[in-house]
């Protein structure tokens, strides 16, 4: 086990596999969560996101591979280390019959010295949650806010958020984003968030991991990914509709060629997953191919590209 120097990632996952019966849910996943980052885990339902999260908090064991969270194996993690992290999903435990103020006391008792009363009350005031309400009486949005308060007032170094905004309205989501932003202002803190909500993710995440069918299909800094993933629209000036497809075949950095629904065959799109100008020059050196425009893809487009099927492929 390693120490906790500032350069060490807070989470390290290497070649993690996990089966449920015969079903392979994780097929060899690798990623890291650096300090000071908001890393988003993106994937469709059933891609393995929650399984991965559960492995990180030690709720599930892995079948294969290495995992370190705060420098420790979550399958055998001392309480002192558990106390430096927090986990929130839309189902994480609260005591429904208690009043909010008692809930705070209970969690404070568990968290000990790390608990920050001032932070808890500042957030309660900001979110307008009455301490005298019973937890059961809180609306879904208020309960989500309370869960976040309980997590953040514990001053965790690592926060794992598993679909925290599921079913929340825009106000609750904005509050959530705001406290996430405040949290990463402390440079050694990190957040790993799994979510469907690409609008939220593109605001706060510096890094994204795309998980599909138990494998990481793309990952990196948001800006780096947007540099690499580009769409170029070509005008094809020959009757042979497959010329662009042939010219791109085997080219590293080209993902696929497609015709957008409704477009004529003379207009085809190349999707690059590792763009550089020489690729474009190479294609344009064919006199039958003119690049009309190239542009960076948005995170939303990259999401559909790497997690979806191959719509428009011909």
């Amino acid at each position: 086990m390693t120490g906790n120097s500032l350069e060490e990632p807070l989470v390290r996952v290497e070649n993690v596999r996990r089966n449920f019966g015969k079903e392979e849910v994780l097929k060899g996943v690798d990623f890291e969560v650096p300090r000071g980052s908001v890393t988003a885990l993106l994937g469709r339902n059933g891609s393995g996101k929650s399984t991965l999260m559960n492995i990180l908090i030690g709720l599930l064991n892995r079948d294969h591979g290495e995992v370190e969270v705060l420098g420790h194996d979550p399958e055998n993690c001392p309480i002192s280390v558990l106390n430096r992290m927090a986990y929130v999903n839309d189902n994480s435990a609260v005591w429904p019959w208690t009043k909010v103020k008692d809930e705070l006391k209970l969690v404070k008792g568990l968290r000990g010295d790390r608990w920050n009363d001032d932070r808890a009350h500042e957030l309660l005031t900001r979110f307008d949650i009455s301490v005298n309400k019973r937890v059961q009486q809180l609306s879904k949005g208020m309960l989500a806010r309370l869960r976040i308060i309980l997590a953040l007032a514990s001053d965790p170094e690592l926060i794992l958020l598993d679909e925290p905004a599921l079913g929340l309205d825009l106000f609750a989501r904005r509050d959530l984003l705001e406290v996430m932003i405040e949290t990463v202002e402390k440079e050694d803190r990190a957040i790993l968030i799994s979510s469907h909500l690409i609008d939220d993710v593109e605001r706060v995440a510096d890094r994204v991991i795309f998980l599909k069918d138990g494998l990481v299909v793309a990952q990196g800094g948001v800006e780096d990914l947007r540099q690499r993933y580009r769409r170029a629209r070509f005008h094809v000036t020959t009757d042979d509709p497959h010329i662009l497809k042939r010219c791109t075949e085997g080219l590293l950095g080209v993902r696929r060629v497609l015709i957008e629904p409704g477009s004529p065959h003379s207009e085809q799109v190349v999707i690059f997953d590792d763009f550089n100008k020489s690729l474009l020059a190479k294609l344009e050196s064919n006199s039958n191919l003119n690049a009309l425009e190239t542009r960076r893809m948005s995170l939303r487009e990259i999401y559909f590209e790497v997690l979806g099927g191959n719509e428009g492929e011909f």
Partner: peptide, 15 residues
């Protein structure tokens, strides 16, 4: 400040 601009724009402070 980094903090106030990040909050106002709702973006990651690292940006």
């Amino acid at each position: 400040s980094v903090r106030s601009l990040a909050r106002n724009l709702v973006v990651n402070p690292n940006t």
